[in-house]
Design a binder for these strands. Structure first.
Lengths: 353, 353
DNA sequence: CTGTTAGCGCTTTCAC
DNA sequence: GTGAAAGCGCTAACAG
């Protein structure tokens, strides 16, 4: 710890105001306002002069005043949970970055809030909205009977979810067709000769979890493989549950030769545990992930995964929320995107024993 | 892609205003305002009644109006670069989450902005500040001759950096003593018998990079090992550079048996490449990281790393920025935190050949 | 202790 | 095409 004193404390520079620009030009405030906002009823000549002066004075309009008048904050809120662990998963953080970038393209800023106490979650949505700090929300990881969705829908707050929900017909969402993806993942594994394929699943309260499990089952069926519910081990999208899940699967001596995980983090955890138990991947065990986070490529071995683009999701969501805030009907913005399998080296035919 | 029409379009609920609460109570607006803000010159009885009514009407003050009047946004800005790749590293995203959580504890929100075009970076700081959307900034990854710092200091904008800078005496910062940490890392490796230890470094324009390199050198010295500058291979904190760096080191047949990487991502990349080249870690090669991201524990093998707490950094920075916005002198807020080595399984004595 | 009067900086009628 | 007046919802002065 260090501490010193200095006099280099710069003097805050006063911000130029609209009135000052108007004064300097000898015109009225409305003229400046409309010129800067490019209204059609201002002469080109005037616009030019105004812009010049604004520039010269380093004028940047106060969004506070503008917000108060216009009623818009030009900001979208994103709440993440389990704050103490940072932005939960790698995918979430990639998505967050992509979303921020995409929103910027629409002139919107992103307000990121870490929810500490789950009980205060709804309150926070309420506060942010009531305070007028945000014009709408993006929700991640939709849950089964997600109270956030009910709450926001009830008050007509614009929002789009990343992931469908029970009420999917009535709100805007974007989602990856994980059901289809998981089915394809299983078929892929089956084509490599695997006959006993397990799944380490996600939190049971997350909406997409059941979709992924359905996909798993559908894949098994279309590959002509039997479905054994005990081969679905519960998890929570963490690497830790991948470790646990794998151990459990191995201990139960179920004869599993391949595992499809709910996401990449879980897959990495599973692989790490496999190594620890002396199982080599993919020679003795194939492991496949989901999401296609960047780290997956660098893992040992590089992870085969069902990939989808965080950047595209971010872009799409940004456009959707812009539309919603602009008054579009929520149900007109619903998009299902495909995932695609990226084969790397964590999967392969099982070595003959 | 799907699209439907529905009539479940809820009617936006009008927000209650201060005036309405005052009216309902038959008192003046200032009374309500002061009661809600817990001013001492309002009777307890009145406060109680006001709070009750505010609650009943679901009143939440408009932060827009408040901001305009008070001149504060109760929001701190954080700009991240290379947006398209999401929040750059795992550490950055952990830190961001921790910061958001900590700020919340002080009643501040976090505005996250993804900088797309590096040339527009300063403009964005300027805009956010001038617009009054934020009361201050947190800067990550300070650079050598960091123009952001000059810019913000010149106009007296409150900010704290995560990482020191050339101007460290004159602004607020928090930093990890990475120099010391790297020195200890080297000594640790030396104690395990390594005589030829390389380093895969970070971007040369990042301020802490040279600190880490100094630490590397200092560690070598105190371990009585020769310093060979060619054993420092340049990188950029990515996993990709870890792969490249490792390959280069191996190709050069320099006899390296251990590598200290600028961060965990680079270490993971290096290990992944090592496996690809058929080198086993740690039997044939030890690799150590820096940061102690959560993923490090799940890697194969689990990563030995110089760890520090993103949560603590977040907490500290939040307190610091609160102080600064409150008028504290920047130089009174400078904190150097230690890192500590966490031994896992990516390091060990080199196997005899 | 509480109410009245102003005004933060902008945008929006509505005259000219 | 442009300017004057009003007001978004709040809080800081000042009276009372």
């Amino acid at each position: 710890m260090q501490s010193r004193t200095t006099e280099t404390h710069a003097v805050p520079v006063k911000r130029a105001t609209l009135a000052e620009v108007a004064e300097a030009l000898g015109v009225g405030k409305p003229t400046v306002s409309r010129a800067l906002n490019d209204y059609p009823d201002i002469s080109e000549e005037t616009k030019r002069r105004v812009r010049e002066m604004a520039n010269k004075l380093g004028y940047v309009g106060s969004s506070r005043a503008r917000q108060l008048q216009k009623g818009a904050a030009d900001t979208i809120g994103l709440l993440v949970t389990a704050a103490s662990e940072g932005l939960q998963s790698a995918y979430q953080s990639e998505f967050t970055g992509a979303l921020a970038a995409a929103l910027d393209g629409h002139g919107l800023d992103l307000l990121l809030h870490a929810v500490q106490d789950p009980a205060a979650e709804i309150d926070t949505y309420n506060r942010l909205w009531q305070q007028g700090k945000v014009d709408g929300f993006v929700l991640m990881r939709t849950r089964i009977r997600d109270e956030r969705i009910n709450f926001l829908m009830e008050r007509g707050v614009p929002f789009v979810t990343q992931g469908r929900s029970d009420l999917a017909n009535h709100h805007s969402w974007i989602d990856i067709d994980s059901e289809e993806a998981f089915a394809q993942g299983i078929e892929f594994l089956a084509r490599q000769g695997h006959r006993c394929i397990a799944m380490i699943s996600g939190d049971s309260d997350i909406f997409s979890t059941s979709l992924r499990e359905h996909g798993y089952r559908a894949g098994l069926e279309s590959a002509g493989l039997p479905y054994d519910p005990t081969l679905i081990v519960p998890g929570d999208f963490s690497a830790a549950c991948g470790r646990l899940g794998l151990k459990q699967l191995v201990d139960s001596a179920s004869g599993v030769t391949a595992i499809l995980c709910a996401n990449d983090a879980t897959a990495m955890g599973a692989i790490s545990q496999a190594h620890e138990l002396g199982l080599s991947v993919p020679e003795q065990l194939s492991v496949m992930g989901y999401d296609g986070v960047r780290m997956a490529e660098m893992f040992s071995p590089p992870l085969t995964t069902l990939s989808h683009s965080a950047a595209e999701s971010g872009e799409r969501i940004a456009s959707m929320i812009v539309g919603l805030v602009g008054g579009d009907a929520p149900a007109n913005h619903q998009i299902l995107l495909p995932a695609q399998i990226i084969e790397r080296r964590s999967t392969g035919p099982t070595a003959k024993e």
